[in-house]
Design a protein around this nucleic acid. Structure first.
Lengths: 336, 336
DNA sequence: ATTTCCGGTCGAAACGTTTCGACCATTTCT
DNA sequence: AGAAATGGTCGAAACGTTTCGACCGGAAAT
């Protein structure tokens, strides 16, 4: 494969001149620029990224770490970040942790080996121990998306999670529901506690009793959510509505209800956090709280590229985006 | 950041010995191995991928190029390939072409700059001109997934596309349908022509008339499919069933029908190629032809890693996987 | 007892870039 | 007219690895 040496020889100039011509990193005559460009074309020269990276000490690689690329929520993020990176001359590398912190370690290590220029992470956990570990393992500019890790100097782009569940819960309350279950997320995650707080706050403000049994176990994935819904619906006094913390858990809940022969929305209402492409094609079309994902993803990669470009350190700023309720058919006034 | 030089100094050995100890590339005493490992731990040394890649002439990067990572079909592929790569010590880099061949060029170029060790591609087109261009641009082991490009020496892993639509069409015919529309894919793609052939063959064998107007325009995405369905359903003598070439187009069709107030499956049956997670939660639960995606993806990356590992050239082999019909509620016997 | 072999270690070259100081003509300033 | 600045070019060093040939001492083979 052709190297810059071949290009230089063909263009009849020194290697350093060819390099300068390619990168416009020093004054070069028009004549030479043209000859170099010509040689590049003829030889099909493509610079060797590893050599550039080694010498210059910078890479054009951006790491993106999400819980699961298979989830429409995260693949949408990946697509946006890929686009922004590509048009800024960077390359994004996406990885799924699968909520496995060992795997997260491994990925982080591989990315470190590649000397990525920066990282966008949707962390698996948000406790301070995990935060410390992240801080220790990461030596490049990093933006946390969707999730705040306690007391860390990373920049963060996130949703107003309290507002998200407040919107959802108040919507149900306005429809007359009084026994509202909530499908919670992984315990300890700030996302989960915030969303729980939004729900609890709305209940309290409406004078609804807070029942522990209505706080269903979940992990943001389908299966456990389905099981939790199964259980509660078999008990006496089942809830008349459910607030789900994620779209995958909403699907799990629908599966469970279908298996039990319970009709949504006639017998139970469901509202989930996070809209997605097919939400309106489901049976029933889902009422959801929409997360402004695209702007959030764009902003996060924007901040990251700015940090990299201007060599500016993390400021620990937190940008918060507001959710919005989209009422469709999975919620309905309670029929006394 | 610590280099192998630091590690060597700390362990009290030569750089080359440290390297040999790390890679087991030459006999090294147990004693030295231990000391080097110790030094690595103490310094938090992580090898510089670019330097390794530059010197050794090989990278541990695998490129994956799909039409759109946002499509559940492709994100599932990405996840599988990521897993296999990671456990084989490689790193996968996923990119979406968005059916844009200029963008595909750009991506290919960037991957070439990174000197990826190999490529898994789901090509945007399959005509021979595109094939030639691919062949010219690609100088690394490559496996084509899901799509055969005419007369090329790449190894290919694909679905039996003719069988897929044959299964779908015969299912509808068995239910008594005689005016069966087909939502076709991008013209010129071998996938599309194969699928069309499967449909036409089934129709012919059943003695159904072939009507050109029933072959609806599509591009594997939602929007155009929706428009095509809108149009045909407004004409006299609309079809009683539709075979869709992709899950996204099936969703588009569903949108269109809903907008027109046409009930599926009462007034029209739909069967789509490619199952996905939510297919059974849609309204109605979708009858689909399942594509054995996981085995296909695993096989493709398996072949690729084998080619890279054994330095064996492409053999131009084609491996074909068989689809399977999953009958759910979107298809129903025609009511005369 | 001499040669051969082998485990273990080392120094140096090489991979393909970027970057820096040096150099040479010109031009511009004083 | 001489000094200083400027545009254009070059050679060489450096980035952090891997790899190769050379070396050494001791064990095995003759």
């Amino acid at each position: 494969m052709a190297t810059i040496k071949d290009v230089a020889r063909r263009a009849g100039v020194a290697i350093s001149t060819a390099s300068a011509a390619l990168n416009r990193s020093a004054p070069v005559s028009e004549d030479v620029i043209a000859k170099v460009a010509e040689a590049v074309r003829e030889l099909g020269y493509v610079p060797h990224g590893a050599a550039q990276s080694l010498r210059s000490g910078q890479s054009r690689l951006i790491g993106l770490i999400v819980p699961n690329i298979t989830n429409p929520h995260f693949s949408a993020v990946a697509r946006i970040i890929e686009n922004v990176c590509l048009s800024a001359g960077y390359l994004s590398m996406v990885f799924s942790t699968g909520q496995d912190s060992e795997r997260e370690d491994h990925i982080l290590r591989m990315l470190r080996q590649q000397r990525v220029a920066g990282l966008v992470i949707i962390p698996t956990r948000s406790d301070s121990e995990h935060g410390r570990r992240l801080m220790a393992d990461i030596h490049v500019p990093t933006v946390l998306l969707d999730m705040l890790v306690e007391g860390l100097a990373f920049d963060v782009v996130k949703l107003d999670n309290v507002a998200a569940t407040r919107l959802a819960t108040e919507h149900l309350i306005a429809l007359g529901h009084r026994r509202i279950a909530v499908l919670t997320g992984i315990a300890g995650l700030i996302t989960s506690t915030d969303r729980l707080e939004g729900y609890l706050g709305a209940c309290r403000r409406a004078g609804l009793p807070i029942e522990a049994r209505l706080q269903l176990k979940g992990d943001y994935e389908q299966e456990i959510a389905a099981r939790s819904v199964m259980e509660i619906m078999r008990q006496p006094d089942p809830p008349t509505a459910v607030v789900s913390f994620s779209n995958m858990m909403t699907l799990g809940a629908l599966h469970a209800l279908r298996a039990l022969g319970i009709d949504c929305p006639r017998e139970i209402s469901i509202v989930g956090i996070d809209d997605f492409d097919f939400a309106d094609l489901l049976d029933p079309p889902l009422t959801v709280v929409r997360v402004p994902l695209a702007p959030m993803a764009e902003r996060s990669i924007g901040i990251l590229l700015e940090m990299i470009g201007m060599k500016r350190p993390a400021r620990g700023t937190v940008e918060i985006f507001q959710p919005e309720l989209i009422a469709r058919a999975s919620t309905r006034a309670v029929t006394a």
